[in-house]
Design a protein around this nucleic acid. Structure first.
Lengths: 114, 114
DNA sequence: ACACAACATTCAAATATCCTTATATATTTT
DNA sequence: AAAATATATAAGGATATTTGAATGTTGTGT
C-alpha cells in the first residue's frame, strides 16, 4: 500500500492519548462499561464519556446496551496491532545510514536515496 | 510488558500528524535533507524545520552535517513498526464479544473480564 | 408515575498545537 | 570578507484539544 489515508493517521492521533490508550488497553482484555473505567482511570464520569464518545465517533469502539449499562468493546482491528507495537521492548536504535558516517563533512553524496 | 511508558504514547502522538508521518515515511526509504522535504511536502522551510525539530527533540530522528546540508535519518526503532501497521490493509472489524450478543438486553453477565 | 442509576451532552475556560512571518546562525563560495 | 545557501529559531495569532461543571437522557425498579 502507498501512504495510509488521512483517516488512519487520525485514528492514530485519537489513540495517542494517555487516557484513551488505557481505555483501549483495557478493552483489549474484555468488555467494560463506563463506571468500570471511572474506577479504573480515576477520572470523572463525564470525562470518561467524552473520551469514549471520541473513540466511538472515530469507529474505534462501539457498545451494546445491557440494561442501563453501556458495554463497550473494540471494533477497529488496528487497535491490537498498535497496542502490540507500543508494548514491544526495543533495545538500541536503528543503524545509522551506512553510506554516510555521522562525522563526515563534504559534498552531498548523490541522489539521497539511502 | 505492562502499560507502555508515557514516553511511548508521546512518541505516538508526535508521529500521528500528516506532515510528520510523510517525513518519517520518506526517511524510512533513506536519508533526506530539509530542502528535499520542502519540495516533497510543498510546505514552507520553517514549517519543515519545526516538524523536524519536534521529531528530533523526541529522539525519533537525528541528522549529520554534510557541508551546509543536514542529512536526517531515523533513529527510533518503533517507527518502521508503526509505519507497517498504518499501511496494513484491514478488512472488516474485530469480532463482537462472544459472551454478549449485540442485541442482548438484561442483567450484566458477571465480572466483565471478557 | 416517580425516583434513582448509568451515562451522555453542552458550555466555557485553560492549554496546547499549528502555521506564518520575520530574523538569526552556520557553512560554503567568490 | 562579503554574499549566498541551507537551515534554525522566535514571536504571534488562529485553531484545536482537554477538562470541569452543570444539565439532559434513558432505562429500571418500586
Amino acid at each position: 500500500m502507498a501512504l495510509p489515508q488521512k483517516n488512519k493517521i487520525e485514528t492514530l492521533r485519537v489513540i495517542a492519548h494517555p487516557v484513551r490508550f488505557r481505555i483501549l488497553d483495557e478493552l483489549a482484555k474484555g468488555v467494560k462499561c463506563v463506571s468500570d473505567f471511572e474506577d479504573f482511570l480515576g477520572i470523572s464520569q463525564p470525562n470518561v464519556s467524552q473520551h469514549l464518545a471520541l473513540l466511538r465517533n472515530h469507529g474505534i469502539i462501539d457498545y451494546y446496551m445491557d440494561g442501563r449499562l453501556r458495554c463497550y468493546f473494540l471494533v477497529d482491528p488496528i487497535v491490537p496491532d498498535i497496542l502490540d507495537v507500543l508494548k514491544k521492548e526495543y533495545t538500541g536504535t536503528l543503524p545509522a545510514p551506512a553510506c554516510c558516517p555521522v562525522t563526515k563533512k563534504g559534498k552531498y553524496p548523490g541522489d539521497r536515496t539511502n
